[in-house]
């Protein structure tokens, strides 16, 4: 991984912070490139993630949305042959700095995957997993409180409070996904990354998760990958359009959907390609 530390980059970083004084930049990508082996999947991505907002990543399949998302909490480290270049910061701190502990980073930047992946454990144990490994609870009551509040924030508590010790895999798909969100919330991250969190869900479950995302943005910064234009329009404040590994454009969702600068964005949003 080659870290870019030249002054130009630093300057670019600072100016963009000055740009919008009312919205804090939580994470920032500068000239992010990703190679899988010899194949380059991302080309010089510059993208800001704003605090307490929902940023949607859209674009045709294979354009690198998941790849970029995984860069944000270094999940690409787990893929053999993946190489990340450029710079990504979290609160102005480069997350690819060797001094950064990945474990700590992932506790601050949580992730929810495309397919619900509850552990084959009880609902309680699923949520308690993160707090346990990070030692967030001082005692049993503490842990129970964390689990309960996480499940409540994930809007799942009422449905599962009577069977909290039954296996998490026994829930419905939508419930499982909310369980995974609760699991991510339980380690109190600052940023939550979601990779097509609703693609395995039916419309009702989707609506519930979307509602949840809307509420969560008060306390968390959210980045969501989605293939549904309606979903992007409904839940996000900012949208970034990817195409063939490049960032086409990025801006307020409203503008992106009504008056995009780039023709490719317009075509994609109106369903002319994808």
């Amino acid at each position: 991984m080659n870290l870019m530390t030249d002054t130009k980059l630093q300057q670019a970083l600072e100016t963009s912070v000055d740009d919008k004084t009312d919205e804090l930049i939580k994470m920032q990508g500068r000239k992010v490139t990703v190679h899988y082996g010899y194949k380059q999947a991302l080309f010089d991505i510059d993208l800001d993630i704003r605090e307490n907002q929902v940023t949607a990543l859209i674009g045709p399949s294979g354009c690198g949305k998941s790849t970029f998302l995984r860069c944000l909490n270094r999940m690409n480290d787990t893929i053999a042959g993946a190489k990340v270049g450029g710079m990504i910061t979290l609160d102005s701190e480069n997350i690819y700095d060797p001094r950064i502990d990945v474990v700590e980073l992932r506790a601050r930047v949580g992730m929810v995957f495309q397919k619900p992946n509850p552990f084959p454990k009880s609902i309680f144990e699923n949520v308690a997993y993160g707090p346990r490994i990070h030692g967030l609870a001082r005692n049993k009551a503490d842990l129970q409180a964390i689990v309960e509040s996480s499940l409540k924030k994930a809007a799942l508590w009422n449905e599962v409070k009577d069977r909290i010790h039954e296996p998490g895999t026994g829930l419905s798909g939508g419930q499982q996904q909310r369980l995974c969100i609760a699991r991510a919330i339980a380690v109190s991250p600052e940023v939550i990354l979601m990779d097509e969190p609703c693609s395995a869900l039916d419309p009702i479950a989707t609506a519930k998760v979307e509602e949840l995302i809307d509420e969560l943005k008060q306390n968390y910064t959210i980045v969501i990958v989605t293939h549904s234009m309606q979903q992007a329009a409904r839940v996000s404040q900012r949208t970034a359009m990817f195409h063939l590994g490049y960032l086409v454009e990025e801006g307020p969702t409203e503008k992106m959907f009504t008056n995009p600068d780039d023709k490719r964005t317009q075509d994609y949003i109106t369903g002319r390609f994808g």
């Binding site: 700590e104 552990f119 084959p120 699991r183």
Partner: peptide, 15 residues
């Protein structure tokens, strides 16, 4: 064991 389970755990900051 599905990769998704490992990712889920690593994504929560487990070693």
């Amino acid at each position: 064991v599905p990769r998704a389970l490992r990712d889920g755990s690593l994504g929560l900051g487990a070693t």
